[in-house]
Design a protein around this nucleic acid. Structure first.
Lengths: 201, 201
DNA sequence: TGTACATCAGTGAACGCGCGTTCACTGATGTAC
DNA sequence: TGTACATCAGTGAACGCGCGTTCACTGATGTAC
């Protein structure tokens, strides 16, 4: 097999990023080699460096894609009509806790090990920080937009705590691999979300 | 240098576990090699396997030590007299968020990457799960013991949410390396803790 | 439109490096007499 | 208590492996005429 067409090459490049994003979310960035990714798209190792400068370059693009997908997924949930911030919060949290295939694991959690500690880990760390902040802002903004009473302090502080609790409960769930006590914690977070900003009747 | 005395050997073994525990918390388990640990205690690689069967064996002991230290640290905070569960919760959360040297990083967060995904990762994964559950139970028990009204549902559910939020906020803090928005989230969790179980007057 | 040539996407072996682990060796420690 | 010997904690080089990256090569694609 010789050279591919420019169009084919671009498609291959996109496939590499997509597969990398899935595999990174499923197994963790540091447990997936460049050869793994290339093998998964049916190519060999050598061609990789025709598309990317380094593994970190690929990681950066894979992060961006994963965060965009997660954001779109949250956005889809928020599209529905909700009766106040609490109902909306419950929907988001339920969606966040719903059992999903490992390729769709939360990027905030799945990619954290790769960037933790390294303040200057290159482009991929930036992509992580941007993506995480974007998801946070999206969560808060949607929550405020569904609030009934803008002056209610609960609408400003509770969502932040809820966000932290949501991520923390899922983070521990991943690490513990289905211990029953953490399921009970997640259930508590879900119930709390449903009461987060009680509607003023 | 030839053989060490039995007593000296036991001390060396303990030093290896202590150094490993510190280094693992500071840099992450997978970023610290056996040679790193041995070098840090002033020994060479070969002697390691006179004390441990494998790196995972060392990891298991290092985990146990770290969780015991964290538990003792929490216990020390809980020793004081508090006026109700809320004051006590605030003290714990404040202590948990206080800036500490990286060798004292939260083991629940620092060791998670090593066990995430691997359901059967050997002894170290068990040590992680046991340690994490122990810290959780300690948190909940201390919280309940300081509650004024045992029938208050907030004393049963809120601590679980608070625990998740506390861990989640710190987890994101580590990964983001001091982004200002996550500081604001942590502050929100601290304020929430101070109101967690309002005393019935 | 057809032809000759340069380009470059993809191949697969190889390199260099760090890691966990093994091994023959050393010599002070522990023990049997 | 003193001596001869076995034990074994610690040494440091070496092994095997997987990784990220490099490289000479291939042959279809793109381009100049």
């Amino acid at each position: 097999m010789g050279r591919s067409s420019q169009e084919q090459a671009l498609q291959n490049r996109a496939k590499i990023v997509e597969k990398a994003s899935s595999l990174f979310r499923k197994y963790g960035v540091d447990n997936v080699s460049v050869a793994d990714v290339m093998g998964a798209v049916g190519m060999t190792i050598g061609g990789f460096y025709k598309h990317f400068e380094s593994k970190d370059d690929l990681i950066q693009e894979a992060f961006s894609l994963a965060f965009r997908q997660a954001s779109a997924s949250w956005h889809r949930v928020s599209q529905h009509e909700y009766d106040g911030a609490a109902e909306h919060a419950a929907a988001i949290v339920n969606h966040y806790f719903r059992k999903k295939p490992p390729e769709q694991a939360c990027p905030m959690i799945a990619f954290a090990p790769h960037v933790a500690g390294n303040t200057t880990d290159g482009l991929s760390a930036d992509a992580y920080r941007e993506g995480t902040e974007a998801l946070f802002k999206q969560f808060i903004d949607h929550m405020k937009s569904h609030a009934r009473d803008g002056s209610d302090p609960a609408a400003n502080r509770d969502p932040q705590v809820l966000f932290a609790a949501m991520v923390g409960a899922r983070f521990l769930g991943e690490a513990l691999g289905g211990a029953e006590w953490i399921r009970s914690v997640q259930a508590a977070v879900q119930r709390r979300a449903a009461e987060a900003a009680p509607s003023r009747t």
